[in-house]
């Protein structure tokens, strides 16, 4: 082998090694890289319910109830949903049908024999989607959906 081929092989090995290490690292740490858990994760027991964590999903339609600074709403991932209580200022993009990520912890609220999991949020962030369009297009898309 000439010197150049030798160097080529070394660089090739370096790239392969790095990507292999990266792949294994990502596989190992995948769980820790999740920024939030979905309501389904909570129901299935995948969320770390003993400490504080984040829950993300869509704000359910007609679920937002305001009482001064206190807001109650449900977050759903179209499979499961969880009730969230938050006291404070919400971001501008917070609205029904939009994505949110709330951080806080689960508490069991019992009212007359029936116990329900409620997520007590300390922070609520809005998560917007990847769609950008003028309002007319949004309205047109919506009416199309209604027709279908």
């Amino acid at each position: 082998m000439t010197k150049r081929q030798n160097r080529m092989v070394l660089v090739g090995l370096l790239v392969t090694g790095v990507f292999l290490a990266g792949y294994l690292g990502i596989k190992a740490f995948s769980e820790n890289l999740l920024y939030f858990y979905t309501p389904s994760d909570i129901v299935n027991g995948k969320a770390p319910t003993e400490k504080s964590f984040r829950v993300g999903g869509l704000v359910e339609n007609d679920s937002v109830k305001r009482d001064g600074m206190l807001v109650n709403f449900s977050v759903s991932d179209n499979l499961e949903s969880i009730e969230v209580t938050y006291e404070g200022i919400l971001p501008d993009l917070f609205r029904e049908g939009q994505g949110v990520v709330a951080s806080g912890s689960i508490s069991n609220k019992c009212v007359e024999q029936t116990c329900k999991n409620t997520f007590i949020a300390t922070e609520v962030l809005a998560k917007h989607d990847e769609n950008y369009m003028p309002p007319e297009v949004a309205a047109a898309l919506e009416s199309q959906e209604v027709k279908e």
């Binding site: 995948s30 890289l33 858990y37 979905t38």
Partner: peptide
């Protein structure tokens, strides 16, 4: 790959 606050593509 992961749930992020950042929106998708």
């Amino acid at each position: 790959w992961w749930n992020t606050l950042h929106q998708g593509y």
